[in-house]
Amino acid sequence: MKILTGALLATVLTASFVSADPVDDTLILNEDITLVTRTAAPAHLSDAFDEVMSGWLFRGTETRAMQADDFDNPGMIFVEKAQESWDTVEGTEGKSCASCHDGMESMAGVKPTYPKWNEEAGEMRTLQMQVNACRTERMGAEAWGYDKGPAINMEAALSSVSRGLPMNVAIDGPAQSTWEMGKELYYTRTGQLELSCANCHEDNYGKMIRADHLSQGQINGFPVYRLKNTKLNGSHSRFKGCIRDTRAETYKPGSAEFIALELYVASRGNGLSVEGPSVRN
């Protein structure tokens, strides 16, 4: 009888939760810019999705509101910190970011195209890698640690000036082989739980995972300010957390695997607005 009651209780509990479907809401930033949080899936995803959706649509009312206003968004604290380092001269060359680039606003349009192939270096670069290339090659300063405070703050600041622009990473030409590698990783089951990214975020988005809503796992909102740890989180750190949760050994932030995965996941959100720094639970 106990078992039966338990099973019934579980049914009651499940039924008592409202649907985990994405909400029908519009993200208007600072009562000014309307962001695209839902759009037709890019061509390469047409077999899996008709529509791609920002993780914003899977969050609660209060969390969504927090992102809609720059003052309410705690992620903007870190953007302000990055603004200071943008203007700070560092390294042997006596330069700051501003010495070459003028204001941060001049970087609008950069974030949506990363990760991006760098012809000169012959490598696929994430935005953090590009920032570090500037630091080491042009400023004569030390590289920042991957997804560490200064690096993630700068990524958030560069993202903030591109908010509202559509994600638009290139997946063909020299990017193609990295993109294929990222796709392979996306569909590969890992860990003792034998789960791939797709098992949760493609096959089961819109359902509950314990008491939480499963989103499509889009990264147009990264870096993300999480209510859980009250700081900015990078996409590589999120990938690491997900893979760890499948009870697998994970790759490191900044590794070739995560660079490829970032490119692939970013491409799944091509067409969604850049949102970072977004607010999530």
């Binding site: 969050r59 609660g60 009312t61 209060e62 969390t63 927090m66 705690p74 999480r226 209510l227 859980k228 740890n229 009250t230 639970n281």
Partner: peptide, 12 residues
Amino acid sequence: APEIAENGNTVP
């Protein structure tokens, strides 16, 4: 206060 808080760390 929200009926359901998404995370106990930050409840408006």
